[in-house]
Design a protein around this nucleic acid. Sequence first.
DNA 1: CTCAAGTTTTACAACGTTATACACGCCGTC
DNA 2: GACGGCGTGTATAACGTTGTAAAACTTGAG
Lengths: 343, 343
Amino acid sequence: MPVSLKDVAAHAGVSIKTVSNVVNNYQHVTPAMRERVQRSIDALGYQPNLAARHLRKGRTGIIALALPELGNPYFAELAASVIDTAAQHDYIVLLDHTGGLREQELLVSQGFRARVIDGLILSPIELETEDLRDRAHDVPLVLLGERDYDLPYDHIAIDNVAAARAAVRHLIDLGRRDVAFIGARRGRSEPAQLRVRGWREELTAAGLPADERLVAATDGWGHADGASAMNHILDSGRRPDAVFAYNDPMAIGAMRVLHERGLRVPEDIAVVGFDDVIEGRFGAVTLTSVSPDKAAIGRLAVESVLARLHDRATEHRRVSAPYRLVERESTLGRPAAQRRTDS
Amino acid sequence: MPVSLKDVAAHAGVSIKTVSNVVNNYQHVTPAMRERVQRSIDALGYQPNLAARHLRKGRTGIIALALPELGNPYFAELAASVIDTAAQHDYIVLLDHTGGLREQELLVSQGFRARVIDGLILSPIELETEDLRDRAHDVPLVLLGERDYDLPYDHIAIDNVAAARAAVRHLIDLGRRDVAFIGARRGRSEPAQLRVRGWREELTAAGLPADERLVAATDGWGHADGASAMNHILDSGRRPDAVFAYNDPMAIGAMRVLHERGLRVPEDIAVVGFDDVIEGRFGAVTLTSVSPDKAAIGRLAVESVLARLHDRATEHRRVSAPYRLVERESTLGRPAAQRRTDS
DNA sequence: CTCAAGTTTTACAACGTTATACACGCCGTC
DNA sequence: GACGGCGTGTATAACGTTGTAAAACTTGAG
């Protein structure tokens, strides 16, 4: 059923290679010949067989994008950007979800799919430096996200420390003094946690104490984790006047708990999230958030992979993507005009 | 660098085919020979080249999953289920997002990627029956979702009419009489819109008027669309006592508008969504929603594709997946405040 | 009108795998 | 003791594509 170069060649009365030359826009083909072959291609509806092409060229035309969770709209937007950019370069994206599990991330980074993909964009959560150190494969790897690895791989991310400091700065400017952090990594060495570091640095810079009891570690990074972390802090008797969450879903989970406990946002407790997901714009209290430029990150990631693919000599680089702080109701100085202050 | 069958064969002192036989668990191989070859395989760290295998076998081992939007957690969960099920059958999933755009959906269904994938699972939004009628390809296609096509393709979905009726029934049981529907398809023939049909049928069955002015058509199906639809209904002077939304994000967008306008949920207006996304469980007012069994849908979809792949003779079938109505605060008889987060 | 130099097209060999068909032992049977 | 039959291993030919090198065709100068 499928039509091959051979079929097109027979139909056009030329050699296989000539058809191949036309398909690949090879330069030494007369316009007349190109025209004639193209007509046959269209007539038969020829489509190149990628498996054969790959076998011959050693490339698959597929790059993998491994993300912790697709359900988080942040990653979904990122994925869209990656897919679009890749398409512009005639690459297909294989989307993978690791669930933020070390085992899965390891599997992906070790290239369990090494013979299928040309390059890999990975957003690790649990992976450690030593896990990445002995990658047997030569498949180009580009890292995304908040984790900081001291390894010779391209890394695309916003400046997480600076972004976190901006968020905390904003809270301090509102007059808040007891700023909690929700979503620290449980049992991990501190230097890798850039957002916590930013929280600590900014508080210290402002002459405020960075009370470690206001840092809530969690297992995951979803709504439920934010909710339980918030409950944990309040149950321990602490009553911060602001919360900075690792990401938006956690911030929203925390806000739900505050609502259940009769605490008002932002009057009693101001809240700042991270990632600026669409959901944060439609709650009863809209969410102030750090907004990374997802489109830029996705684009840069693809371009890095492809650059390394076509010329493996380049230096490994660390690219900073833009971000900004979007202020909404959850950190408003005064109650919003239309907002009903239901207890 | 990569080690091929040839290398292993040379190392073990046997023919290439014998190594292939061992790799593929071909039956006529003596244990001794198997052992010996296996040792060479392990020693050299041989990994099969999938491209070559696929070229030879005519299969890629990849199935595509094309979804309207990855950002909607409903689809993310669905994707996870598909990926997992596929992995169990040694298949890889190529995730694609159509944005719910007819052009993209057409492209995918026409198989612009036909030579890369063995099968396709598509969740169409805009696609029409005639678009699917003349698919040139023989790549197995399985449809998902709410759209109803009278075509010989497998279709996995919950009974959308029945589910919508259950949702409306629930609202009627609460004593609501003016139930609005948010998220109708703009300018589309009605029979395809199963959830609207369920809304209409159930109201009629209860002896209530199905007021078409309470049906709000939208362009998209996101938060913002739900919000503007809600605004539109209220601006037109209508004041329904209940809203049934096409999906959860729209319901949440609508609730935001109700909140802005000082209308209480559920006291003034009860709200029911569709899909049961996690976000609905963490708003200031948690959302009642129709909860399709996403895991089942994903599993059934993969199994259908693979069945058709291995034996193309089977009848095309329409499979109904389970669902249930999850009741939360947005349709509670009593006031919503002070309720703890439910799981 | 010939021949060199350039341009366009072609034949053929790979890429790594599996299917087909055949060769080789080994057994039991006549 | 030759003869099918079976169980095991092996050459060889594909699968559809592209790179290489050589063949065929132009072109233009002498």
